[in-house]
Design a protein around this nucleic acid. Structure first.
Lengths: 336, 336
DNA sequence: TTGTAGGCGTTATCAA
DNA sequence: TTGATAACGCCTACAA
């Protein structure tokens, strides 16, 4: 059916070896070059990737394993990763494991079995043994957004602690003393770090941490809604609030709107991620902006380097800085 | 490095052919079965997919081409598709083309070149010639959510027209006469159909269609916000509004909250997609619920059938029904 | 039931 | 620069 190198060789009156060499960047006589180009065009020849892979043992495919295909943060990163990799001829095998540690293992094994050339992943678990299948098969891999404790591994993430620190500190500097935080899931690295930033500010400024102001969420919209509502229902509600991911920020904003809380008069708000939210709400929301595009690109580029056996600086730990985008949603606390 | 069938054969004291046969479901003597299982386990043997693919000319990989990796509708479908396909041993090569017709062609060609066994796509363009690369290579494919005019092609979509009809009709029955709609992009099939449902109801009930109540959006959150605001700014605002996708519904809700519009007293609202929104807003939002999971599963299953050369009923046009989830956001218009 | 051997389409080695 | 040829790891008649 599809033309093979053999066909091209016949068509051009040359040998298979010559065609192959030319196709892979080798030099041939100009006259032959023309001949080959012609044959390739006429026969609509495309190299057979499987045959090539069999020989070279490279599939030109990288796996991407993420916790959730329905989180905008994850998919934005995938989108940027994909864009970089594609430029270099790589395809991406995307899997999500639906936040399930068992599925995480399964899919990782699945991907490892598929002879991927490399893998990018946002791990859920913190167990270095998780990465064993990759080690065993010598598959280069880069972690995104979350480290795995005690594993030598290139890791691209965000300085969550200081991101959070900066946000909360700003609130403190504005004069706030009762600051609520809607934190992410226990055990998830980003969530713990963002919480640490919050407590560290309190330490550094000698402020008491009130447990009731620390609310647990699972990074879902409904958590933001529910916990925001709960905070507002407190006898003494906070004067400022920090919400630690996009989906929860969305939910929190809805709760605020619903109750006609005036911002920033009644409550100062700092959210997380995603610019478009910012402009939608009135007054414009202050947010912690993650360099999503840079994360994706850096991860992809690091993996590309590893896949071409450039081990420079291994293991890289890239801790990207966030930006605190301040807008009208933050002001001084109401003076009673 | 990795063990091959040859190694297994040696280890088990049998021939390569026997091992291969057993691995592919053939029968061998019980004694040998044990031997082989043991060898496979000890050597941690995994079949080499490339070698197998080279022989069988099947890659066990399907491409998934979507307009946008940042739209929850798209990624939810991908997630469900992936889940079904993975059960059958297939991987999914996910690409988004960022709503760009040029990139759509490029990525399609890219995928076709990668010897995928099949493809699922949500097309942007309506040009049957778009699918040529697939035809040329005989790659089974199934369209999702949007048809391509004049192309014989299995297509899984939603009965957008009647989905919209039901929503708008319900508003009319409630007594509304000035009903706004925030429509999707021109030329996109789903958007046109949803608009048709709106106009058809007006025809069927002999109601005039007011151009000013038909607002253009591009399916983005900010469009929902902007157009909702514009509608509220009209001298005579509508008494009810129908928003035609998830992202725009989100934006519209924000605009409503911001202005403290009372729902449904001042305005009845019907949105689109995604349950979680519903419960977040107060009062609970009425929405058109698309059977996202079913769409993904049906598309995957149809493709699976085609990939095993089951041509039954080709070309299938599966028009799934939506559900109108009515809640307190809809009521009769205010009587002036 | 088991084994032998040829071939899938490339790449890579080594002579010519 | 070009060409003959042997892998790559697996599947599959066909023969035993």
């Amino acid at each position: 059916m599809a033309a093979t190198i053999k066909d091209v060789a016949r068509h051009a009156g040359l040998s298979i070896a010559t065609i192959s060499k030319y196709l892979n960047g080798g030099h041939v006589l100009d006259a032959n070059r023309v001949l080959i180009d012609l044959a390739v065009a006429e026969l609509e020849f495309k190299v057979n990737g499987m045959a090539r892979s069999l020989k070279t043992s490279r599939t030109m495919t990288v796996g991407v394993l993420i916790p959730n295909l329905e989180s905008i943060f994850c998919t934005s990163i995938v989108s940027n990763v994909e864009n970089v990799l594609q430029e270099f001829g790589y395809s991406t095998l995307v899997c999500d494991y639906r936040q399930d540690p068992v599925m995480e293992r399964r899919k990782l094994a699945f991907l490892a079995d598929r002879q991927i050339d490399g893998l990018l992943m946002m791990p859920l678990g913190n167990d270095p043994e998780l990465l064993e299948p990759l080690r065993a098969r010598n598959i280069p891999h880069v972690l995104i957004d979350r480290p795995v404790a005690g594993s030598d591994c290139d890791t691209i993430l965000v300085d969550n602690l200081n991101a959070s620190y900066a946000a909360v500190e700003h609130l403190v500097v504005q004069g706030h003393r009762r600051i609520g935080i809607i934190r992410g899931p226990q055990g998830i690295h980003t969530a713990e770090e963002r919480l640490k930033g919050y407590t560290r500010v309190h330490e550094d400024y000698n402020l008491p941490v009130e447990k009731v102001l620390i609310r647990n969420g699972e990074y879902r919209t409904e958590d933001g809604y529910g916990q925001m509502s709960a905070l507002l229902d407190l006898d003494v509600p906070p004067t400022a609030i920090f919400v630690t991911n996009y989906e929860m920020t969305l939910g929190a904003v809805m709760a605020l709107n619903e109750r006609n809380v005036r911002i920033p008069e009644d409550l100062s708000v700092i959210g997380f991620d995603n610019h478009s939210l910012t402009s939608l709400v009135k007054p414009p929301l202050s947010i912690v902006v993650q360099p999503i595009r840079e994360i994706g690109e850096m991860a992809a580029q690091t993996l590309l380097r590893r896949m071409r056996d450039d081990r420079a600086g291994f293991p890289i730990l890239c801790r990207m800085k966030t930006q605190l985008l301040l807008q009208a949603s933050v002001g001084p606390p109401r003076t009673p």
